[in-house]
Design a protein around this nucleic acid. Structure first.
Lengths: 203, 203
DNA sequence: ACTACATCAAGAAATAGTATTGATCCAGAT
DNA sequence: ATCTGGATCAATACTATTTCTTGATGTAGT
């Protein structure tokens, strides 16, 4: 009993998150608390390294992760940031059990709740409610991704910067600008100049 | 052939180390070069986290690792530091395949050569010479450990500090004093006072 | 030749990590 | 009871690392 309570306390942010989507019964809460394991990643630590299979579906309790691809020239292209109450995973690698071409690492010390592939399947089997939860959750991610793509192919760097500031104002002051630049696909120097320009035109 | 040379070059510090213990023949060198994989851990990054099984036997090429236990109060007790040409592993977890109660992380960016459990067994099977090498190497570690224990149970903090300075003079200027304090089992403040005292009595 | 960026180098500014010091407290040995 | 060998807390100082900005110069596409 004591142990159950401890697990539930650790999983609380995730249980809250699910609860807001679909109410869970007692047993379902306990499964979640049992199958999602808390884990701390420290700043700069890899969560997933290119060439490894992505074995974990990660829910971020606190901190910030980034997913990126390193191109042939060694430049970093950031696909996604994720902070509190977001998910981070290479879904392709996770489901195909094939090595990932992507990297995930921590920009801050980050606590996640992670579930392994096998345990996630077990969870789906035990309660189809989780099929629905994860469908919705992935749909949300899909929508953000599509939005991001559209912006990328259709806008100039300045427009992308402005859109970023609108969509993720909380990230703007939280992340180093080097990271934001890598997300926008420009150099930190150029981002610095863009910001300068913005600041000047405002007054 | 080219590839062989590259691997041997990467494994050079380890081959030198073995060579000083027992001469290796060509095939043995190649096994070592093949089975030990180079890996970089960045400062603050975990090499082993409490609760995980220790799967790798690590030889440090450059950098510095620390092994420690976190107690119920959250205090850190450092069991061991390891720098160039030393080994770092939770031997208990490694051999029992049970989760470790210890943490290992990097105090500096650290390059290791690591061999997995299965590959180490394979190495022993291929050449019993490695049984001897690893026996000797673990005996060395055992002796340091026993010395450390003895010091710990029999000395005052000041004596332990002096002994540390004698035994590991190179670590004294390399590690932050917070780490040395955690190794000696005292607070950084008290260590600071001890050093002050030493400096004054010398003149 | 103008716009929208990149590259490189250097310095400034901000932040995080480390060390020191003083004040106060406490437990065990004398 | 008080002295010694420590701990804890808070403030300050110092150092190192990371991040940001700026200037100079270059380049590809319209």
């Amino acid at each position: 009993m004591d142990k159950e309570k401890l697990l539930q306390a650790q999983a609380a942010p995730l249980l809250d998150y699910f609860q807001k989507m679909i109410p869970l019964d007692k047993a379902e809460k306990q499964w979640v608390a049992d199958l999602f394991k808390p884990r701390l990643y420290r700043k700069r630590q890899y969560v997933l390294q290119e060439g490894d299979v992505c074995h974990q579906f990660n829910f971020i309790v606190r901190g910030c992760l980034r997913m990126y691809k390193v191109d042939e020239k060694g430049s970093i292209h950031i696909i996604q940031f994720a902070t509190e109450n977001w998910w981070m995973i290479d879904l392709g690698s996770f489901h195909s059990r094939q090595p990932s071409a992507l990297n995930i690492d921590a920009l801050e010390d980050t606590m996640v709740l992670q579930i392994s592939y096998d345990n996630l399947i077990a969870l789906y089997t035990q309660s189809p409610k989780f099929d629905r939860i994860f469908r919705v959750l992935i749909e949300n991610s899909f929508v953000s991704l599509q939005k991001r793509l559209l912006q990328n192919i259709s806008s100039t760097a300045e427009d992308r910067y402005l859109a970023f500031m609108e969509t993720y104002p909380h990230l703007a002051n939280r992340l180093p600008q080097t990271q934001i630049a890598a997300f926008l696909g420009i150099t930190p120097e150029f981002l610095s100049r863009l910001r300068n320009k913005q600041a000047n035109t405002k007054t």
